[in-house]
């Protein structure tokens, strides 16, 4: 039987969750015995080349590109996992939620104390750029998500235990210390 295939992506995240995946240390050798990777920053494969069994996503959705990638993952992965606080509740980027986008952009590009000269009040507005959303959305408010691994970042042991349980079909027993929101 062929190995299960994993795809991963970082949306509005900091890549800390991906770092935490790498933090499983030498178990990464066992991991590649258990699974294959497809689209993922870890393998640097940019596009899906086949259907995947597990999609792991860090970061919430802050712009239209994030939504597009997320929907593609939902389409092409059997199981979708929200990895980390940003994927689950928006996280740090969601600190702007509740503040109108106009106010955020004004602060970032026009009126903020760290903004240099911008007399014409120019804001990035190229059609190549994804459009920023009204707020940062947790993944499950956009597509159906099957599992959640909280933490900032989720502990490497939690990711390991969860992925192994999912792949082997064994029951997942999570020790108390592994589920943390920080």
């Amino acid at each position: 039987m062929s190995k299960p295939i994993i795809a991963t992506a970082s949306l509005a995240g900091c890549f800390g969750c991906h770092m935490s995946i790498l933090d499983i240390d030498d178990r990464i050798l066992k991991l590649i015995e258990l699974v294959d990777f497809n689209k993922s920053p870890i393998t640097d494969i940019k596009e899906f080349s086949q259907r995947c069994n597990i999609g792991i996503i860090e970061g919430g959705c802050c712009n239209t590109e994030n939504v597009e990638v997320l929907k593609e993952f939902r389409d092409k992965c059997d199981i979708l996992i929200s990895l980390g606080e940003c994927a689950i509740m928006g996280g740090l980027p969601a600190l702007r939620n509740g503040i109108p986008v106009k106010e955020c952009l004004d602060e970032a590009y026009c009126d903020g104390i760290t903004v240099g000269e911008n007399k014409e009040k120019i804001m990035p507005n190229d059609e190549e750029l994804p459009i920023i959303l009204d707020k940062v959305y947790p993944l499950h408010e956009i597509v159906k998500v099957d599992y959640y691994l909280p933490g900032c970042p989720p502990r490497a042991d939690l990711i390991w235990e969860a992925v192994v349980a999912l792949v082997t079909g064994d029951e997942l027993k999570i020790p108390y210390e592994l589920v943390k929101f920080d």
Binding site: E85, M89, L92, L95, Y148, P150, C152, F181, D182
Partner: peptide, 25 residues
């Protein structure tokens, strides 16, 4: 937003989230 909160780890609400294994609201 727990990761940015100084009370994290000592917070009763978060403690209950852990006790009841809240993975997502």
């Amino acid at each position: 937003f727990c990761p940015a909160c100084e009370k994290s780890g000592d917070c009763d609400l978060q403690g209950l989230g852990y006790r009841y294994q809240m993975m997502v609201p």
